[in-house]
Design a protein around this nucleic acid. Structure first.
Lengths: 197, 197
DNA sequence: CGCGACGTTGATTTGCCTCAACGATTGTGG
DNA sequence: CCACAATCGTTGAGGCAAATCAACGTCGCG
């Protein structure tokens, strides 16, 4: 594996747990590189999610198709992990899609390899725990925002938290993430632009 | 500690990880029992959440007070864990309240004790990981329901998942959990009752 | 170039909110 | 123990934010 190419990855891994060199190298060896062209699918509804992936460069969108059409649920960029955790853990079919927003390079951790990792030492268990804890806190906040903020407040908050997100994610996908329709978000953006004058 | 009284607890602990007797006993010894009268607060906004608790009997409501008034975020009953995980982990003031829905007995795990637990062995790390994973999946589903389902669908799903919830949680609290106002939920309930005839 | 996808805008409808008031129940103090 | 107040769930009337249906200009791509 080319460590230069994977600097983003090793930095992301070391951020949560202070792995020693041997541990880090063992971890990295299990990660299988994969390239996705823009719009390519990493996961489609009905499939079992067989891997969790971490992004070296590019971006992924995690979404579902329901009665209201596509509903974006999460986005991931450089250094972020993504996968359908529930499908991955329970090895049951996922109702979600994962699609590349741009040309993307990911490093894949397959189920069996992850289990080996957990057997390999407490640091890997700790890594898994810390990651799950952080995800839980983040998605909990996102849930709270949905019930306690207006659509415009949610949009402004998203823009404040991720200023460059609108350059990498289509407006329609941001809208469904916020729980509103693209037309409504368009009007909200117009109002904000008008208010700024 | 009275193990008879804490059957709910040891069952809940053993559900995630197959602890041996020594581990289980060590875990239980760290849990400090506490009783809460109905309406008593376990946590108030501005305080740091110093413990995660597991419920032996009774129920707790986790909520926030914002511009729209009280917003319920989660509920916990027998065998469930609760606490403001973010405040607990970061040791920073919480914006949340935790209040007893009924007379409730909890077992408290304080921050330092939890850290000791994590140092004590891989099974405890694994326990923490599995718990965080499950919470992440549950709150992720809850977030998705908010954006993809109508208020009525969310209510019906909640009732299907927890049929007895309405006997233990006030309608107004269910409403704010669903992201709607109590009056709206009242109308939704009327519609459902009318449709059933 | 021509097609399709995207973001936008307009007109209308709808689901939920807001403000207000009502009985029923719970709880409390005289 | 009863009278009163507070809380709760409900209902009504009206308003507003967002959804829906429809159309348009722009851009990227085959």
């Amino acid at each position: 594996m080319n460590y230069l190419m994977a600097e983003t990855i090793s930095a992301a891994l070391s951020q949560l747990v202070d792995f020693n060199e041997e541990e880090l190298s063992y971890f990295m060896k299990l990660l299988k590189v994969k390239k996705l062209k823009q719009h390519a699918f990493l996961l489609q509804a009905g499939e079992v999610c067989r891997m969790m992936v971490i992004i070296n460069y590019g971006g992924l969108r995690y979404f579902k198709i329901g009665e209201k059409g596509e509903q974006s649920h999460w986005f991931a960029f450089e250094g972020d992990w993504l996968g359908d955790y529930e499908s991955f853990l329970t090895r049951s079919p996922s109702p979600y899609y994962i699609q590349a927003l741009e040309d993307t390079e990911i490093y894949c951790l397959y189920y069996d390899d992850m289990q080996h990792l957990y057997e390999k030492g407490v640091n890997f268990e700790r890594f898994g725990r810390l990651m799950a804890e952080r995800l839980f806190v983040a998605v909990g906040r996102a849930r709270m925002d949905l019930v306690s903020l207006s659509a415009e407040q949610r949009y402004l908050k998203l823009m404040a938290d991720f200023p460059n997100i609108s350059k990498r994610i289509q407006v329609q996908h941001i809208a469904t993430y916020l729980g509103i329709h693209p037309q409504s978000l368009s009007r909200i953006r117009k109002n904000i632009a008008r208010a700024k004058e």
